[in-house]
Each structure stands twice: as C-alpha cells, then as structure tokens.
C-alpha cells in the first residue's frame, strides 16, 4: 500500500520549545491513521505541517506526492481539516455554513446542491438545516464540521481530536461515519486522546514530547507486547494510597494508575510468585494478578520508559 503521507525526521521549534524532535510518519492511502498522545506531544503541530499551515524547520515530508511547503495550493485543494476547537460560524445556520465552505472551495452552484444533499443524508443534519451552528449539540457540531471539511471531496481528511468532549453515543456515530468515508477511499489522519478510538484506527503513532514512541497496527502492538504486566489492588483502599509503595518496591520499573487499580510493567521479573513475594513483605494486603495488556498499558509504559531514558541521558 502506498503512503499518502510520508515524513522523515520532522523538526519544529517554537522559540525554545521543541514541538517536534525528528518525527517520522507514514499514512497509507485509504487508511485511518491515528496520532495518540498527551497534550503537548506535537500531534496538532505535525497535522498543521501536513496541511501546510505551518512550516517545518527541517526534515522531509511528502503529502499527496508534493511537499506541502512548496505546493500549498495542491495540498489545500485535496485536504479537508477539522481543527481541535469547533471552528465554524456559530451565528450562521447549518445550511449557511455548508454553503459558505462550498463557496470558498469553489464547489459551484450545481455541485453544491448535490453535495449538500449527500452530506445531509450522510450526517442526518437536514432537519437542523435552519438551526444556527451555535445552538447545535456537541455531537451535531462535530458532524457539521466534518460535513464542511468534506464539501470539496478531499482525498485526505485531517481531524484534530474531533470527538473530545462529545458524548459516547455521538462518538460512536462519528466513528461509523469515518469508517463509511474510509470505505469510499478517503484517507484519514486523526488524533485522539481516547484509547478505545485508537483501537479503531488501522495504524497508530504513539507520540510523546515531539517524538514517536511506538507505531503500528493497534492489535499487533498489543500482541507483540512481550513484557510482563501485573495488576495490583488493595481492597478498601484507593490506588493513590498505595501506588508510591509499589513504585518503591519495583523501583526503576513502569508503575502507573489504571482506573481503580495500579498496573506495573516489570521487565526484570517475569515470575508471578516472585512478584507476590515482594509485595507480601510489605504491610499492605495486595492482591496481584498477571494480566494481558491493553493499548493504554503499552502507551503508558512506553512514555514512562522514554521519560526514564530522558532522565538518564
């Protein structure tokens, strides 16, 4: 499969802040590729570089077979973008927003009616065509923003955390729409803070502090996670109360909160009995389980090990 986006060693600094420290990215044509990472990881920055909204300091990038810095017109003609914050005109109606974006993308009057009707069917926004965008619910706003990004039939769709703050049902509906778009051949680059959404991507790039710490198909990444993952719980106690004790016991290993429990990726110890022996020697009544990893475990353990390496560097 050919790559619609191929980036090597992208560096971008904002003054003294290093937003991207040599990032690599490959987005296969027709895929949904996810950028996963905490705030400040550089997800929006690489997206803006892809879209030609920002210039890179160094590195190579090809988007739709052109360099975004050199052929902005081509990039802008074939990409659709949904920024992180809702960026449509709240005082314009659904229909007026769609019409405005069709006009600035030079869709043409005849083409517009056809596309609008198709987008209405796709997003089911038609009953709200006369509603001002500001009065729509969070989920509907996102559907409208997606429809506006699609008005000129882009080949590449760049979506910056499109479902943040949206209710779970609307998120599910939104993802169904994305899969429908993928089936039509549109390539999607999406960033998300939700691990369940990361699992819905064909490929993911886990980012931390301007670098990719892990990449691949989510299922393969989980399958290939060879380290030993243990779950700890003390009945009747909150995990915050005993996590420090576990960090002390397993010093140098990745120990982190996971919901109401604590997880630890133990590289040096694989034996369950050995782990149990170590925690039993403490005062707390730990319950220990060896568990199968989830994407979140993989991500946090990579971030923590990256931070440890950084400290020692």
């Amino acid at each position: 499969m050919t790559n619609l986006i191929k980036a090597d060693g992208i560096v971008k600094n904002f003054g003294i802040i290093e937003a991207l420290k040599g990032m690599d990215l490959e987005v296969p044509r027709g895929s949904i590729t996810g950028l996963i990472g905490p705030d400040g990881a550089g997800k929006s920055t690489i997206m803006k570089i892809v879209l030609s909204l920002l210039k890179r300091d160094s590195g190579m990038i090809s988007v739709l077979s052109v360099d975004p810095d050199k052929d902005k017109a081509s990039i802008r003609q074939h990409t659709g973008y949904m920024p992180e914050t809702f960026s449509l005109y709240t005082d314009l109606t659904v229909e007026e927003n769609l019409k405005f974006y069709s006009q600035i993308h030079k869709v043409g009057r005849n083409g517009y009616s056809e596309k609008r009707d198709r987008l209405y069917r796709f997003s089911r926004l038609e009953p709200f065509s006369g509603t001002r965008a500001g009065n729509l619910s969070g989920g509907m706003k996102q559907k409208l923003a997606l429809s506006c990004a699609l008005i000129h039939d882009p080949e590449l769709l760049v979506l910056d955390e499109p479902t943040t703050g949206v209710d779970p049902l609307s998120r599910q509906e939104f993802w169904n729409m994305l899969h429908e778009l993928q089936n039509r051949g549109i390539t999607i680059l999406i960033s998300t803070p939700y691990m369940d959404e990361a699992l819905k991507c064909n490929y993911i790039f886990m980012m931390h502090r301007g670098k990719v710490v892990e990449k691949g198909a989510p299922v393969s990444l989980i399958k290939d996670f060879s380290e030993n993952l243990f779950e700890f719980e003390v009945p009747g106690k909150r995990p915050q109360e005993y996590i420090d004790l576990l960090k002390e016991i397993f010093s140098g290993e990745a120990v982190f909160l996971s919901g109401k429990r604590v997880h630890a990726v133990l590289t040096g110890i694989s034996d369950y009995e050995e782990v149990k022996k170590r925690v039993i020697s403490s005062d707390a009544a730990f319950q220990v389980k060896k568990i199968l990893p989830e994407l979140e475990d993989l991500f946090i353990s990579r971030i923590l090990s990256e931070d440890t390496n950084e400290t020692f560097r």
């Binding site: 879209l51 802008r76 990409t79 449509l88 974006y101 600035i104 030079k106």
Partner: peptide
C-alpha cells in the same frame, strides 16, 4: 482566535 481563519487559509480562495 476562533480558528476559522485556518479553514479559510485551507480553501481555494
């Protein structure tokens, strides 16, 4: 401020 200008920049206008 609202980010709408990025969308205008990305259009064919």
């Amino acid at each position: 401020e609202k980010g709408t200008f990025d969308l205008i920049k990305l259009s064919s206008v």
